[in-house]
Design a protein around this nucleic acid. Structure first.
Lengths: 151, 151
DNA sequence: TATTGTTATACTCTATAACTATA
DNA sequence: TATAGTTATAGAGTATAACAATA
């Protein structure tokens, strides 16, 4: 099962590097995906990505500075900010999605068809079964939440 | 392929939590494994685990404080310290290895035999092929090196 | 001059607590 | 009283730079 770690590690490194080349991060992509055409507030987006609201502030600061998303005042709650993805944000998100899809396709394409299906089948079974839920953890390691991983 | 991340993430969380229950960390286990009966110096161990020598100092401080390993003066180089794993260290390492092996066995055991072999075969092919080498990365993410991952 | 291990320091990333302004 | 977002701050984790002792 060390194999599993190594494969995931190398794949994540490659995806993060390729996203960085076009000026995107896995977290930024995650937030933009949840925000586009959704009319969600910062707090809602933070919950969707399992990040603290203060981490969301930092993330939004970066996205706004990069011109990829904007904070708009909510018409119904003057405390809240609705996050809107800009046209530039949409375009970059589309490019990022293509980058990720291309890598996945390339990786899976390197396997013979039978093995490819076997891999996906086994992983699906694990996710739906034995590895479905993270175990309880008193002091969880300080790392990105799964939802923010490149995917 | 998001499946791959999720499976690795959940598995790593479980292993880290179970190691913590017995007072072990993935990094500590990695260093102890490389050190036991090997007569290696701190720098050699740091290189084997792909960590900075200053990170190794911190790691050894913890292992020594916990009574799991000791710094001995090298008989041939008065600058160097040979790391020796204590009896307590050996015992805890053995327990840790058993914890990890049990989890792996349990996870793989949750798959029907055909899928199990398919999974291992596909992962092996990826590691030896498309996902063999991490891509070059200007500013690599600040995270544990693969070698220190639980395995 | 180069290397081992150490210390001091800085940087990244993330979260907790306290605050402002609303609700 | 509670909530959205912000700021200030703290902590974990890791690395870089400078240093002392030794090669």
């Amino acid at each position: 099962m060390m194999l599993l770690h190594q494969a995931a590690y190398v794949l994540e490194t490659e995806l993060t590097a390729k996203l960085a080349e076009i000026g995107m991060t896995p977290r930024g992509r995650c937030v933009l995906s949840s925000a586009v055409d959704a009319g969600r507030t910062q707090t809602e987006l933070a919950e969707l990505s399992n990040m603290d609201k203060t981490t969301m502030v930092v993330t939004m600061d970066a996205l706004e500075k990069a011109g990829l998303a904007e904070r708009k005042l909510s018409p119904t709650d003057r405390r809240a900010r609705i996050i809107e993805v800009t046209e530039a944000g949409r375009e970059l998100l589309a490019r990022a999605d293509r980058v990720v899809a291309d890598v996945y396709e390339d990786v899976l394409g390197s396997l013979p068809e039978g093995e490819r299906e076997g891999l996906l089948g086994a992983l699906t079974r694990l996710i739906e079964g034995r590895l479905g839920e993270p175990v309880e953890c008193d002091r969880p390691p300080r790392r990105r939440a799964l939802r923010q991983a490149v995917g």
